[in-house]
């Protein structure tokens, strides 16, 4: 039925891969050099395929998909007007906060330095929620740097990071987590991904903490990855309220299905206060 050579090849290939897996599991690490080399080589190809798909979608949206542009234009004008009003309000609040900070002698918040990156590829292994971006170590990127989008937190940079490309683990991935704070109640918790409906689950929330649906959730900066104050999402639902098994679902602020341009935060979060670190 099957010749010996084929069987021998099958056994060799399977054994080789089992040994490769065991070596990585024992050393608690991957095969960084090989991974970075393969990732870097493929990132160049990915950039070309992205350029081709973008050109095709660009032609489609630029020439064929122009229906409803006037309506969209009017809506955008309205949105711009609303945002201008909101900006003025924010400026007023900001100047108030600054003067209060001066009064209290507080240190001004350190502005974060970011670099813009384009998403060039999706998750190659189904079930792993990662994307590849077109910035790497040559642009100052390193593992554990926060990645944010226009709406909120996207994820963090993970290995492999090549000279011109990097992998970003999305916040909704099963192995992703972020330290969060519920804005209204100022309760700290951990948001973890891996939910089948694309939401995040809040863990380590004190039983007596008063959390309400619709409450804004931001990063707390306690994880030393995400800078504090960036929106993570809003509380979508709370089940089992009043019991120790209370489950809080957070709808992420970022739309992970339309990732195009993201910002990588190059500035590390400010050090934690000594009291918090000692605890």
């Amino acid at each position: 039925m099957i010749d010996r050579r084929t069987l021998a090849l099958l056994v060799t290939l399977c054994l080789g891969q089992v040994l490769l897996i065991s070596a990585q599991v024992q050393s608690q690490g991957g095969v960084p050099l090989l991974q970075v080399a393969a990732f870097d080589a493929f990132a160049r190809v990915q950039r070309v395929t992205t350029a081709i798909t973008d050109a095709v979608t660009g032609v489609w949206s630029g020439y064929f998909g122009l229906r409803g542009v006037a309506r969209e234009n009017a809506a955008l004008r309205q949105q711009l007007l609303d945002m201008a009003v909101e900006l003025q309000q924010q400026r007023a609040i900001s100047s108030q906060v600054r003067s209060l900070e001066e009064l209290l002698g507080l240190k001004a918040a350190v502005p974060v330095e970011t670099v813009a990156a384009r998403v060039i590829a999706g998750n190659i292994t189904p079930g792993t929620l990662t994307v590849a971006i077109d910035r790497g170590t040559d642009d100052g990127l390193a593992p554990d740097m926060a990645v944010i989008g226009a709406e909120g937190v996207i994820g963090r940079v993970i290995n492999p990071v090549a000279p011109h490309a990097a992998t970003v683990q999305l916040l909704i991935d099963a192995n992703a987590a972020a330290a969060i704070v519920f804005e209204r109640s100022q309760t700290g918790a951990i948001a973890v991904g891996g939910q089948s409906d694309g939401t995040l689950r809040a863990e380590f929330v004190p039983v007596l903490a008063d959390i309400e649906p619709g409450e804004l959730v931001t990063t707390s900066g306690q994880d030393r990855v995400f800078p504090p104050g960036f929106p993570v999402g809003t509380v979508e639902s709370i089940s089992g309220a009043g019991t120790p098994n209370r489950t809080i679902r957070i709808r992420p602020a970022a739309d992970f299905s339309h990732l195009d341009v993201v910002l990588v935060v190059l500035t590390p979060p400010p050090p934690l206060p000594a009291a918090t670190e000692a605890r």
Binding site: C14, L20, I21, L34, T125, I158
Partner: peptide, 26 residues
């Protein structure tokens, strides 16, 4: 052979443990 190549390439590019997808696809 296709399974080994494709799976290992997937593992290397996604940053997961190399060989898992390779073994399954082989």
């Amino acid at each position: 052979i296709g399974g080994t190549l494709g799976g290992l390439l997937q593992d290397l590019l996604s940053g997961t443990i190399a060989g898992v997808s390779g073994l399954a696809k082989t």
